[in-house]
Amino acid sequence: MLFAILLPGISMMFRGHFLKGLLCGILHVTLIGWIPAAIWAVASYNEDQAEKRHRETLAALRRQSR
């Protein structure tokens, strides 16, 4: 998560969001844009984590119902 705050564009690219990462990187270049870019990257990171937990829960439920 610290990586998402310090280098938001690269953080998004590493997680597979290339276009979002590029836009976030351009936003990060400006001093005023760094704060919204960091917030966006952290929100995206949290969303990816929630999606991962959701998939794991669904997989566990499918295994349990068999």
Rank of each mutant, 00 (worst) to 15 (best):
M1H: 05
M1L: 04
M1C: 01
L2A: 11
F3R: 12
A4L: 00
I5T: 10
L6Q: 00
L7Y: 10
P8R: 12
P8S: 12
G9Q: 10
I10A: 07
M12P: 01
M12T: 08
M13D: 12
M13C: 15
F14N: 08
F14D: 04
G16N: 13
G16C: 10
G16S: 12
G16K: 14
F18A: 14
F18K: 15
K20M: 05
L23Q: 08
L23P: 03
C24W: 02
G25E: 01
G25R: 01
L27Y: 07
L27M: 14
H28S: 15
V29L: 15
V29S: 13
L31W: 15
G33C: 04
W34V: 03
A37M: 01
A38P: 06
I39C: 03
I39R: 01
I39W: 06
W40P: 01
V42A: 09
A43I: 01
A43N: 00
A43F: 00
S44N: 03
Y45C: 02
E47F: 05
E47S: 11
D48H: 11
D48K: 07
Q49T: 05
R53D: 08
H54T: 03
R55D: 07
R55W: 11
R55E: 12
T57K: 14
L58M: 12
A59F: 06
A60S: 14
A60V: 06
A60P: 02
L61I: 13
L61H: 09
R63F: 10
Q64S: 14
S65I: 13
S65F: 08
R66Q: 05
